[in-house]
Write a protein that binds this DNA or RNA. Sequence first.
DNA 1: CCGTTGTATCGATGTACGTCGATGCAAGCT
DNA 2: AGCTTGCATCGACGTACATCGATACAACGG
Lengths: 115, 115
Amino acid sequence: MSNQEPEITGCRATVGDAPLDAEQAVELAGVFKALGDPVRLRLLSMIASREGGEVCVCELTPAFDLAQPTISHHLKLLRQAGLVDCERRGTWVYYWALPATLERLTGFLRASVNA
Amino acid sequence: MSNQEPEITGCRATVGDAPLDAEQAVELAGVFKALGDPVRLRLLSMIASREGGEVCVCELTPAFDLAQPTISHHLKLLRQAGLVDCERRGTWVYYWALPATLERLTGFLRASVNA
DNA sequence: CCGTTGTATCGATGTACGTCGATGCAAGCT
DNA sequence: AGCTTGCATCGACGTACATCGATACAACGG
């Protein structure tokens, strides 16, 4: 449970301002890769769009035509990317989005729109 | 040359507002996947950050410790994702960024920050 | 305590992807 | 024409990834 890998070095990288150095590119690409799957994108969307900010896994799993371990695996990747975190409360596990990571992505993308 | 696959159905999908439907998720995930590689991210960054908006491939290729076909391959994936386009002018090929696709990504991500 | 339910992990399998050398093609030069 | 240079495509190879069934673990209920 709780966050795992990334702990991304805090700095605003942008597409438009200056070319990314190799290290930042690896970190950012890891997050984008986590979003590069339709199932994970829908999972994140379901989690982030929820009023209250939390969703029970028991609500996420049946929303897809996939086996339970597959959903669990995708949730793990979202966790490792720093996009969501979770907590067990009694029988169920609840997930919520971590806006900081999403902000890093928008910060990177935004600058290119004006470039 | 010129754009290839996506022609993404124009509509603003967001993480925060409502869960993505399956079809939109596939389209968006395809673009995110294109950004899910450090080399492609740096390529896009180099292209988008360029004053004038265009970069010659002859300038991109030597910036990496990779074979020329590899860079060409990554540029092709960026093209297929609708993130860049290119044109041959004489001997050289020039690439530029397509802001519309990037805007679609920021539009999707932005809403979750407030959620 | 034992069965049941919710979730994560493990191991296997097929497919997708990053990388490369070899080759092809286009444009300029001599 | 022939040579050279810039870039794309092809085919092959190794690795990473999405998916699954089986299993393990955690919490609750009888």
